[in-house]
Design a protein around this nucleic acid. Structure first.
Lengths: 137, 137
DNA sequence: CTTTACGTTGACGTAAACGTCAATTTCGCC
DNA sequence: GGCGAAATTGACGTTTACGTCAACGTAAAG
């Protein structure tokens, strides 16, 4: 192959599965699991997975989704929103409806979290004050 | 038994399991499950469970905890914070530490939620604008 | 006194999200 | 050219949070 093939000008950053696992504090198993669930679709170098910038970004979105309590199938749907998937009018309407439902849930969740944060703060203050006073003795 | 026993002056509000289930949109099974996990300990009238104001309050806390993504054992711990459980100094220190850890998690969660809310808003606007324009045609 | 409705206790089933092996493969290195 | 480190593919196990019967009790209604 004398041609000028496989020329990679600005070779994009790539990661192995264990690099990503380490970076995000999860296991390789989890990452492969997300792939099973179609949340990731890395390239392959032979048998090995090769993750690019885009895959890494999606992984971040997945983990953020998990932190706010979404299921993987929820997250799957939301990731689709980032793909300009030429959807029909009806599909868009459905998407809009579901997004608004989710928004309502998230806003309730926000209120709940604020409440719990306040209460935890209160509790922490109570406890630490008590501990201080006792120490002061 | 001629005495003045079982006098209930301001008979406290009570609920059956299915009343609570209906009110909070959950199943009786779930409520019994919470009892298995020691999150609730209703009275009994013979064989039947009788829930009081306090039980109802705890149930609300349980459900709020679930909405913010806590596990039932997390919630169990947090409910204990409401019981002035004469804990030792070391126990209190532990509780304080754990509460602070949880606070950190909750604050991250808050940030995540705000981000996702913003993005969802953006998406919804995009979609609805697109739908309007198309309709205008 | 039988139905009907609600409640109770097991006991088993299930979906989600991985964990945990075990058995290869593959690649770089000495 | 053998060896260890990292990766891969099954396959089965595990935890959480209930769902889903089945079988039974019981109290009010007709």
């Amino acid at each position: 192959m004398p041609g000028s093939n496989n020329a990679e000008p600005t070779a994009e950053a790539t990661y192995t599965i264990s690099q990503l696992a380490a970076e995000f504090g999860i296991t390789a198993r989890a990452i492969r699991f997300y792939e099973d669930k179609k949340l990731l679709q890395p390239e392959r170098n032979g048998q090995n997975r090769v993750y690019g910038r885009r895959d890494r970004g999606r992984l971040q979105l997945i983990l953020r989704g998990k932190r706010v309590g979404f299921s993987l199938s929820d997250i799957s749907e939301m990731l689709d929103l980032y793909n300009p998937n030429d959807e029909g009018r009806e599909q868009l309407k459905l998407t809009l409806e579901k997004s608004r439902d989710r928004l309502a849930v998230l806003q309730q969740q926000r209120r709940d979290i604020d409440e719990v944060i306040d209460e935890l703060h209160h509790n922490c203050n109570q406890i630490s004050q008590f501990l201080e006073k006792q120490t002061a003795t």
